[in-house]
Amino acid sequence: MNEPLALIAAGGTGGHMFPAQALAEMLLAEGWRVKLSTDDRGARYAGGFPDQVTRSIVKSATTARGGLTGKLMAPFKIAAGVSAARAEFRKDRPSVVIGFGGYPT
């Protein structure tokens, strides 16, 4: 039987990613499979995650930055990220999802 899968959703800054990394390490030690779902910004902090953690980069955005074009494109990026995350949920069927904040959560 496969080990249970924990999906960790975190992104944006080290303040979200470093606690997520600590949990990932603990879960791996307990025999879980772990997947990280993050955005481009969070991926910059994912280098310290153990190699056994699979990674998924989802689109995310905010209407608080990016000028007029960024504000207009944000809903489309968010919709694309939600759609991709839903597809991955259906494929992966995680046993648990743990969110640590940031836009991709």
Rank of each mutant, 00 (worst) to 15 (best):
K77Q: 13
F18M: 11
I78S: 01
I98C: 07
P4E: 13
L28P: 08
S83H: 15
M26L: 14
G81P: 02
V53L: 10
M26C: 12
Q52I: 03
A9C: 14
P75L: 02
M73T: 15
W32P: 04
V97R: 13
Y103L: 08
W32K: 12
D39Y: 01
A10E: 00
A80E: 11
A24C: 03
A20D: 03
A85P: 04
A20L: 05
G70I: 05
S56C: 13
T105N: 09
P4I: 13
R90E: 10
R65G: 02
E3A: 15
F100L: 07
T105D: 09
Y103P: 02
L36Y: 01
F100W: 04
I98D: 04
K71L: 07
S60K: 00
A22K: 08
G99C: 06
H16D: 02
L7Y: 06
K77W: 11
A84I: 01
G66N: 04
G11L: 01
G101H: 05
M26W: 11
R41P: 03
P104L: 05
I78P: 00
M17F: 03
T54G: 09
A61Y: 01
R93A: 15
G101M: 01
L68V: 15
Q52D: 10
P50M: 12
A24I: 04
K91V: 09
Y45I: 04
L36A: 05
A85W: 13
F76R: 09
L23S: 10
F76M: 10
G67N: 05
F49Q: 04
V58D: 07
G66C: 10
P19A: 12
F18C: 12
Y45T: 03
T63N: 00
K59P: 00
G99N: 02
A10R: 00
G66T: 08
